[in-house]
Amino acid sequence: MNIVRPYGDTLDDGKVQLSFTLPIPDGAKGREAARQLVLKWGFKDCDVVHSAPLSAGFSFYVAYGKTESSVDYDSCVADEHSAEASMSMDEVNEFIRRELGRKVVVVGACTGFDAHTVGIDAIMNMKGYNHHYGLERYPEMEAYNLGAQVPNEKLIEFADKVKADAILVSQVVTQKDVHIHNLTQLIELLEARGERGRYICVAGGPRIGNKLAVELGFDVGFGRGAYADDVATFIVKKLAERN
């Protein structure tokens, strides 16, 4: 057991900072409404430290609350594919040479109507992101980034053509659950062709967790903060397992 609470400046003081908008005019009455609201959320104390009008009928609040809620840190399980540290780019390439003895082929795209390539680019482009080189830079990998707005059918055809080992799908837009639809459709199409087992399927995006991805039939999901080395490590280890 390791019981924890938010830490402001003293152990267990339970201090939390909040900011939110209410559809009411700014003023003393608005601040009181904000305070009561924070108390209703279960906070024991509330200081509304700032309020400002956003427009005639909307106001903005910054508040501090004190919570008595706690959580047992030891019993928490993270929604991540593995607790192990990922290998570096060099280690991944060395692993491929040693364990697989051939190039690993990876195909990636933003599917459906999603036009946001930042995620797939961060993982695949030569340059990578935040000093983590992308898969195109890996000498032991052949990486194809098909870009944005790629229909699932095209992605599968391409993966077939280049004999891909892994398919990477990035979904950034999640409004009205359009990402769920796109991701599910890819898996269904693969299953209909009897090819699901042929590929390691990887989903990624700021709102994609591993749990969600696995539920939808992917091998793994990567969310915020994942880099090419994390993705590459997962793929090559999985391939080695299969051998």
Binding site: F20, T21, A52, L54, S55, F58, F60, P206
Partner: peptide
Amino acid sequence: EAIHTPFMMDRYLAVD
């Protein structure tokens, strides 16, 4: 920017 389409208060903070 990296999280969601802007909330009304996000725009306020930007203008401010």
